[in-house]
Design a protein around this nucleic acid. Structure first.
Lengths: 340, 340
DNA sequence: CTGAAAGCGCTAACAG
DNA sequence: CTGTTAGCGCTTTCAG
């Protein structure tokens, strides 16, 4: 690879001059600049970001640590983050946390070792134990994504409690009295918040509410629903179910089909998260749609503000409001009226 | 941040010794190693990958350049690549090509500037013009993913021609004579190959085959199908359609529903790509399922072999065989028999 | 307006 | 078994 020194030699100038024309960091005379540019063109010189980063102790890189696999929003998330990041001149490095504290710590270490300027983290269940303290100690600016944890970093997540309460209330309004909730991975703030929304409505209205553990996974949710619905007689089983997220909705649908239960006739269904195919299935799914791109770009903005010092001194906690998509799977009177 | 020199000082040794215990690159006496390790623990020292990479001229980083947005396989792809990469000790840096030659070149430059050791690229339509020659000139090991382009790099992609021919033949076997094909972005090898599979069967059997341009996008496909099916009378319009990929399947389904056409009664449907929800819609989709994780891990293996010199001198071109998932949307006699 | 020189934090001969 | 000494390729004072 051709280096800056090579270019300098060819242009008959000092390396520092080459650096300065490249970075526009001091005024360079017309002819000199031309010579340098010519030499660059002739040699096909490309700056070595590594050396540059080392010298400036800044990498213009953002790290994203999140669970990759079985995260339905992952593609959206990465796409939005990458584009806002690179609009600001930053690259993106990834590390998978697997939603496991050990892997998460490894991921965060890895990113820290690569000296990312800032870090976006979807905190795992026990992020407060190791990962967050490490980041704080290391002084790495971070924003927490999708879930809340600790209190020293900026956080941005969708609103969960009210949204799930809305979903639950919607079923109750339609006359259902025996409800089930398919819950996500235990310990995540998103899980407990959605659970809270469900429980709140159930107790406020004196309904019966069963919470099933779907562990945020398709297969687990499928098994949980299968066993819950097949073990109870038709007169006792829930007549409506609220699903806690995307992947578990897939599992729930599979389970109900296996059981031969029709939606919404035999059991009504509503879900947190609005998959791309929500309006393609029969019946179309009534769902809470979260604005992943908004959350992603907001997170990037927050981290950039931390980096350039324009952020407020105290950590921010923000909620992105989701929207209700009223379709047919709820089986309520007004079903089929709105939204696509 | 604490540096290696700090650790060395604290341990009462030379920096090189610290380096060697960290890398296991020469034998260090028990006590010395202990001292170093203790110092590392006490200081919370973390290696600076930047400096290390600069000194070793190797970053143990792989770059992935691909279209992010509206790539249904993206999440799978990244997940698989990241995990195989990090099993081998490599990190992953991303850059979005947007499937546009200009953005692609920018992406590739960016990755090159970061001195990735190897590059995985889903080549855009005109990758041969700029991006590939650049990589070749720069001597950056690369493997092409998902589509073929040029002939100097290793390539791995799903089989397209036979798979699409199979899909088309399946419809023909069921008695359809007027077929339509919703094609992807023009210029991609995957598009032309799938088109070829369709066309081959259509002409071999003397059928009528219309090719619609869906540009690999949901909305475009939707519009194309909408206009094609509404402009022709019931007696002339295709009775079966083959869709070229995932995103366009969504568009096609939406269009058919808008038109009030029932599947498979009014029009039979089969598609290349097997979305997660293929068995959740009514009717369940008959589809070609490609093994994205297999392709991803194979690509990583190939690049690693290039890096450690175990790869054959001549570029490899490999196909990952997809599988046929026979479900109900084809409406053929045997429908509903197999697969979930 | 431009050159010289010191360093960023680490690795890797080269000595001993 | 361990210390010294050059770099890796760039940025950035400091002079001039």
């Amino acid at each position: 690879m051709v280096t800056m020194a090579d270019v300098a030699r060819l242009a008959g100038v000092n390396a520092s001059t080459v650096s300065h024309v490249l970075n526009g960091t001091r005024t360079v005379s017309g002819p000199t600049r031309e010579a340098v540019l010519a030499a660059i063109a002739r040699t096909g010189y490309r700056q070595n970001t590594l050396a540059r980063s080392l010298a400036r102790s800044s990498t213009t890189t953002l790290g994203l640590a999140s669970r990759f696999v079985s995260n339905p929003h992952f593609a959206d998330l990465v796409t939005s983050i990458e584009s806002s990041a690179r609009r600001a001149g930053y690259s993106l490095v990834l590390a998978d946390t697997h939603d496991d504290p050990v892997e998460e710590l490894r991921a965060v270490h890895e990113l820290a070792d690569r000296r990312v300027d800032g870090l976006l983290l979807a905190p795992s269940v026990h992020a407060d134990d190791e990962a967050l303290p490490f980041l704080e100690r290391a002084g790495i600016p971070a924003v927490l994504l999708d879930r809340f944890a600790g209190s020293v970093f900026d956080q941005v997540a969708p609103e969960n409690v009210e949204a799930t309460a809305l979903l639950t209330g919607h079923l109750a309004d339609a006359g259902h009295t025996r409800l089930a909730f398919v819950a996500g991975l235990e310990g995540l703030s998103s899980t407990s918040e959605r659970c809270e929304g469900f429980t709140r409505v159930v107790s406020a209205r004196g309904l019966s509410g069963t919470v099933l553990d779907g562990r945020s996974e398709t297969a687990v949710a499928e098994a949980a629903v299968l066993s819950a619905f097949s073990s109870s007689s038709a007169g006792e089983r829930p007549t409506a179910v609220v699903v806690g997220n995307n992947s578990m909705t897939v599992g729930t649908l599979r389970a109900l089909r296996t059981l031969g239960l029709r939606i919404p006739t035999d059991v009504a269904l509503v879900c947190y998260d609005d998959p791309e195919w929500a309006d393609l299935v029969e019946p179309r799914l009534t769902a809470i749609h979260q604005d992943v791109p908004a959350m992603a770009t907001r997170a990037v903005t927050m981290i950039l503000e931390r980096l350039d010092g324009t952020a407020p001194p105290t950590p921010r906690r923000e909620r992105i409001p989701p929207t209700f998509r009223h379709r047919d799977s709820c089986g309520c009177a007004g079903s089929g009226v709105s939204a696509r």
